[in-house]
C-alpha cells in the first residue's frame, strides 16, 4: 500500500528572547497576568531576520537530517500569515535560497491552521493519480512581530516568531507510518474576528497619501469560543473518519494559542491533559509554526515515537480549523 511518511522534522527560532517581565517594561502588563491567562512565559522575537530566512534555516536542517539531495524535492510549501512580500511567495524565496530547482513552490495562507492545510495539500499532490510528486518539504514560518500592534497589550503579549517543518515522502513499501484521516473547515463569515495586514482600496484616484497596512487585531472572546467549540468537533470528525476512538490517540499536538484553550479542548474531548503536550510557555503563539515546532520538540525528545497515532490540529485566522491524524 502506498503511504505518506513524515520522514524528518526540524525547527528554528530567532535568538532574541523576550520575557513577560521585558514586556511589562514597555506596556501595562505583568508576568502574572500573562502567564495565568495564556500559559506564556516568554517568546522569541526576530530582529533582522524575515520569515523566509527562518524557513530557509529549517529547510537546510531538514536536508542535513535526511541526507536528501535538494534537487529531489518535488514540492516546497510554506504556511505563513506573515510572508516577506505579497509576491514572491515565501516558499519561492526559500526554494531559491536552498536551490531546490525541481520543486514547485507556493505559500499556504490559512494562518494558525496553515500547517495542517499544508499537510492536506501535500497529501493531495502526492496521491493524485499519475502524480510524480514523491518528496515534499512543508514549513510553517512566522515573523509575527512585524505585524503586531506593540501598543495593544491585549494582543502583543500573545505572539512569537519561529519556523518549523517536515519532510514528507510517498513510500510504496507500506511501512507503518502514514496519513490516516483529516477534517478541515473554514468559517469565512467570522473572518473579521482575527485580522492582520488588512489593506485598503484607494478612496480616490489619483491616490493621496500612502498605502496603509493594518496591524494585528483580534476579538479574543469570539476566537476563544470558536476554538473551544470547533476544534473538538474537527478532532472528533477526523477520529471518526479514521475508524478510531479518542482513547486510541497517543498524543494531541494542538496549535499553541493559549494553554487555557488547550485545557478546555481536552476537557470537552474527555481526554487527560497529559495527552496534550504544550510548549507555549517558551514560544507564545507562533501561528503556522506552532504545530510543527511542538511536533519537532516531541520527536527530538522521543516523546513521540514511530508507530504512535498522533492528532495534529490547528485553528485560527480565516477563521479556519484543521485536523490531520497520522501514524508517525
Amino acid at each position: 500500500m502506498e503511504t505518506i511518511k513524515v520522514v524528518k522534522t526540524a525547527r528554528c527560532v530567532p535568538a532574541k528572547v523576550v520575557t513577560n517581565d521585558d514586556l511589562s517594561k514597555i506596556m501595562d502588563t505583568s508576568d502574572e497576568w500573562i502567564s495565568s491567562r495564556t500559559g506564556i512565559k516568554q517568546r522569541h522575537i526576530s530582529v533582522g531576520e524575515n520569515t523566509s530566512q527562518l524557513c530557509a534555516v529549517v529547510a537546510e536542517q531538514l536536508l542535513k537530517k535526511s541526507g536528501w539531495d535538494v534537487e529531489s524535492i518535488d514540492l516546497l510549501l510554506v504556511a505563513t500569515m506573515s510572508p516577506d512580500t505579497y509576491t514572491p511567495a515565501t516558499a519561492a524565496l526559500v526554494q531559491g535560497k536552498i536551490g531546490a530547482h525541481n520543486a514547485l513552490a507556493f505559500d499556504i495562507s490559512a494562518a494558525c491552521s496553515g500547517f495542517i492545510y499544508g499537510l492536506n495539500v501535500a497529501e493531495k499532490f502526492m496521491t493524485s493519480s499519475g502524480s510524480a510528486c514523491n518528496r515534499v518539504m512543508l514549513i510553517g514560518g512566522e515573523v509575527l512581530s512585524k505585524v503586531i500592534d506593540w501598543t495593544d497589550r491585549t494582543t502583543a503579549v500573545l505572539f512569537g516568531d519561529g519556523a518549523a517543518g517536515v519532510l514528507l515522502e510517498r513510500q510504496e513499501d507500506g511501512g507503518a507510518s502514514r496519513f490516516i484521516s483529516s477534517s478541515l473547515h473554514t468559517y469565512g463569515e467570522l473572518g473579521d474576528k482575527l485580522e492582520a495586514g488588512k489593506t485598503e482600496a484607494l478612496v480616490s484616484f489619483p491616490m493621496e497619501g500612502e498605502h496603509k497596512i493594518k496591524a494585528f487585531s483580534m476579538s479574543g472572546r469570539d476566537v476563544y469560543k470558536f476554538a473551544t467549540h470547533k476544534v473538538p468537533v474537527s478532532i472528533e470528525e477526523a477520529v471518526k473518519k479514521a475508524g478510531l476512538t479518542l482513547d486510541q490517540i497517543d498524543y494531541f499536538v494542538l496549535h499553541q494559542a493559549n494553554s487555557r484553550i488547550v485545557a478546555q479542548i481536552a476537557k470537552r474531548l474527555n481526554q487527560p491533559l497529559a495527552k496534550f503536550p504544550m510548549n507555549i510557555a517558551k514560544y507564545g503563539n507562533t501561528s503556522a509554526a506552532s504545530v510543527p515546532l511542538l511536533l519537532d520538540e516531541l520527536v527530538s525528545d522521543k516523546t513521540i515515537k514511530r508507530g504512535q497515532t498522533i492528532v495534529l490540529s490547528g485553528f485560527g485566522g480565516g477563521l479556519t480549523v484543521g485536523t490531520q491524524i497520522i501514524k508517525y
Binding site: S36, R37, G220, R221, Y224, K225, T228, H229
Partner: peptide
Amino acid sequence: ADSLDVFEIMNELED
C-alpha cells in the same frame, strides 16, 4: 474567576 473564566461561563450560557 478571571476574564477567561467569565468568557467560558458566558459561552456556556449562550449555548
